[in-house]
């Protein structure tokens, strides 16, 4: 199963049409709407988690784009601002996956993004605020 959180932007001309229901009907995808709003100029914004097989997911996203819907990847990642990190180690107390760990004997704090689950616990735990949440590459689709 493939799953991603997406931000969908509906142009004012499309906002009244039933669109997302066809993701289920025609593409065998499930979705969970996390947020939805129609803005003052009638454009619609929806944040949803879309789940299905990788192929169906891809076809579903293509269908949305064909309807004039702008699709963005809403997933986030944690980045370390190297200049701010003092290698104190405080973050390693809260990191649940071991993505932040101490290399011994140098006592350097290493950050392995592959192990990071984006739980964000390190963000407020870092005394110098060296850990940041950022959107992953928007040019994903």
């Amino acid at each position: 199963m493939y799953s991603k959180i997406l931000i969908l932007r509906f142009p004012a001309t499309e906002v009244e049409k039933p669109i997302v229901c066809y993701l289920v009907k025609d593409y065998d995808l499930t979705f969970n709407i996390l947020n939805a709003a129609v803005l003052p100029r009638k454009e619609g914004v929806m944040v949803l988690e879309l789940t299905g097989t990788r192929k169906n997911f891809k076809d579903g996203v293509q269908y949305l784009k064909n309807q004039g819907v702008q699709v963005e990847n809403a997933s986030q990642e944690i980045k370390r601002i190297k200049k701010k990190c003092t290698h104190c180690g405080a973050c390693t107390a809260v990191c649940p996956t071991g993505a932040l760990c101490i290399q011994r004997p140098e006592m350097i704090v290493e950050f392995d993004q592959k192990k990071c689950s984006v739980c964000e616990l390190c963000v407020p735990a870092c005394p110098t605020r060296a850990m940041e949440t950022r959107p992953t590459n928007k040019a994903f689709f």
Binding site: T86, C88, G89, T92, A93, E106, M107, I108, P127
Partner: peptide, 11 residues
């Protein structure tokens, strides 16, 4: 139990 430093050895 894990021992966590707050003082930077690197610095």
């Amino acid at each position: 139990i894990p021992a966590v430093p707050l003082s930077s050895m690197v610095r």
